[in-house]
Amino acid sequence: MSTPLFEYLLRLGDDRLILGHRNAEWCGHGPILEEDIAVANVALDQTGEAQLLLNLAGQIEGQGRDADQLAYWRDETQFRNLQMLELPRGDFGFTMVRQFLFSAHAHFVLEHLASCPHDDLAGIAAKALKENRYHLRHSSEWVVRLGDGTDESHRRIQAALDELWPWTVELFYEDAVDAALKAEQIAPDQAAIKPKWEAMVTEVLTRATVQPPKGPMRMVGGRKGRHTEHLGHLLAEMQIVARSHPGASW
């Protein structure tokens, strides 16, 4: 029923839709006005990327669904985002550490996709790669600044990292969807990305004077539609207006 490429585009699109949603929650509530603006900017990029990716997913699927139908009319078990991205936004440090861990990985994925043989996807990836460079720079600078700032900020960044690190295992998740797309040179090889991501992350965390925890990684299932309890609440809020008025245009 659903092709690997459709599934893969949902994964890419949902990651950005959900993280963009969480980041947008900061609008009006940031620690300093400049950051209200900056984080909103990131959210805007991510929502725009989600729209492009989900529209393409709808085209590939060929059932007449567009990005809005996919975003607003799927239930939580049909979402394919990483679980880490649906967690509540936490404090500003948590938001920055999450953005950094995700953007560092996205950088290598998008770099690959930008030159993949699927032209539409390559075009979207090239645009997203450019935007992600800013997200990566912005978040990594904050991770360093806060990690190496005051005792309190150091403690908070280390706590955010302790909480988030066990979820990062899911960044490298692969299944038959990836295998099929790797065979077509579309999807990147996560095993090849992992050392590059680790090197980039280690470099920044070292400057931030924090360390990843040693403990076990989480059991995750976002790519298969198995989520945390947070996603249902996020979607209830996101979808309420659209679903209260079936068939309406906005």
């Binding site: 949603h21 947008a24 929650e25 609008c27 009006g28 209200d36 603006i37 909103a40 900017n41 959210a43 805007l44 929502t47 725009g48 989600a50 729209q51 990005a67 809005d68 975003a71 607003y72 809020e237 996101m238 309420i240 207006v241 659209a242 008025h245 309406a248 906005w250």
Partner: peptide, 18 residues
Amino acid sequence: ITRAPNLRRKMCLIAKVQ
């Protein structure tokens, strides 16, 4: 922002508040 009924409106609203 978190309840905007489609993605275009959501982006317009984020951009406006920004």
